[in-house]
């Protein structure tokens, strides 16, 4: 025990300069996958060797919305659903800054759905990391647009009957240039996807399927976070380039992961610049 402490003093956590360690432990529950997404993001930054001073993270509200508070760059925790327009303002105000939006499914796809669609349409140079845990966890487990049928939640006490959203399909339809999906277990692949997305100019989306051990899996009796991870291990299938309309996630069925879209479109700033030149 004592030996460990002295070593801690000798060497700090490798993500120390990327994360606000003074705020640890974070608020996420045991077995939650948001920490994994942050871990992958931090690792990706490490790999890219970005100038962290020129990086900015914007989050909305929700469990994933708290990510901004733990990443040691200029970070903004904004209102519910409005992370993307806030980030748009930052990007257009200062195009030198790399802006990353990390938020949850409810925040980005439900209340912020319109901003998601329109930022993708404009192809604003943002990287969006959407942590999808199939539920509104911060408010206590309500049905989300991504909740599969017929999963139980507190506001669908008799089983969800609404058709769930398919985030990659929405992103593609709206015009995102890079769309990938991984689970919280595919840590290395997720990291490389985030690296790719960060490198790509334009609106790139990485969806991270993450366990919610507190609400989603408890109310549906799916065990704890580890059981969810084991489920991902057994049921995720890597299919790169799969057409996005095949990517719907059924309740406790296979999850197709991989990189689905990687295309070129002029970004908003490029089109704007070109327009002015004409």
């Amino acid at each position: 025990m004592e030996a460990i402490i002295t070593q801690q003093e000798a060497k700090r956590h490798p993500m120390d300069n990327l994360l606000r360690m003074d705020r640890m432990p974070h608020i996420w529950c045991p077995g939650c996958g948001i920490g994994n997404a942050v871990s992958a993001f931090a690792d990706a930054l490490d790999k890219l060797e970005y100038n962290l001073d020129k990086l900015c993270v914007v989050s909305g509200i929700g469990c994933t919305g708290r990510v901004a508070g733990y990443i040691k760059v200029d970070s903004f925790h904004t209102t519910h659903g409005r992370a993307i327009p806030f980030a748009t303002g930052i990007k257009l105000g200062n195009p030198d800054i790399k802006v990353v939006v990390i938020s949850g499914d409810g925040d980005l796809v439900s209340i912020g759905g319109n901003h998601f669609v329109h930022a993708a349409r404009r192809n604003i140079d943002l990287t969006v990391i959407c942590v999808n845990n199939f539920i509104y966890a911060m408010t206590g487990g309500q049905v989300a647009p991504t909740t599969p049928t017929p999963a139980y939640t507190t506001t669908s006490p008799f089983g969800n009957f609404e058709n769930p959203s398919n985030v990659p399909q929405l992103a593609e339809a709206a015009g995102a240039v890079y769309v990938a999906r991984w689970t919280a277990l595919h840590m290395r692949r997720l990291t490389y996807s985030i690296v790719d997305a960060l490198k790509k100019p334009g609106f790139s989306v990485v969806e991270v399927i993450s366990p919610c051990a507190m609400y989603y899996s408890r109310i549906n009796k799916l065990g704890d976070g580890l059981d969810m991870m084991k489920f991902y291990y057994d049921h995720s299938i890597i299919k790169h380039g799969e057409p996005t309309d095949h990517l719907e996630i059924d309740y406790q069925k296979e999850i197709i992961v991989g990189k689905f879209v990687d295309r070129e479109r002029p970004t908003y700033s490029e089109s704007m610049g070109k327009w002015f030149e004409d």
Binding site: G106, I111, Y136, T139, G140, Q142, T154, T155, S156, P157
Partner: peptide, 15 residues
């Protein structure tokens, strides 16, 4: 409705 703390219990009870 739309979930927001601290009103969610009401919506849940209604549901």
């Amino acid at each position: 409705g739309y979930p927001i703390t601290p009103s969610t219990e009401a919506a849940e009870a209604f549901a």
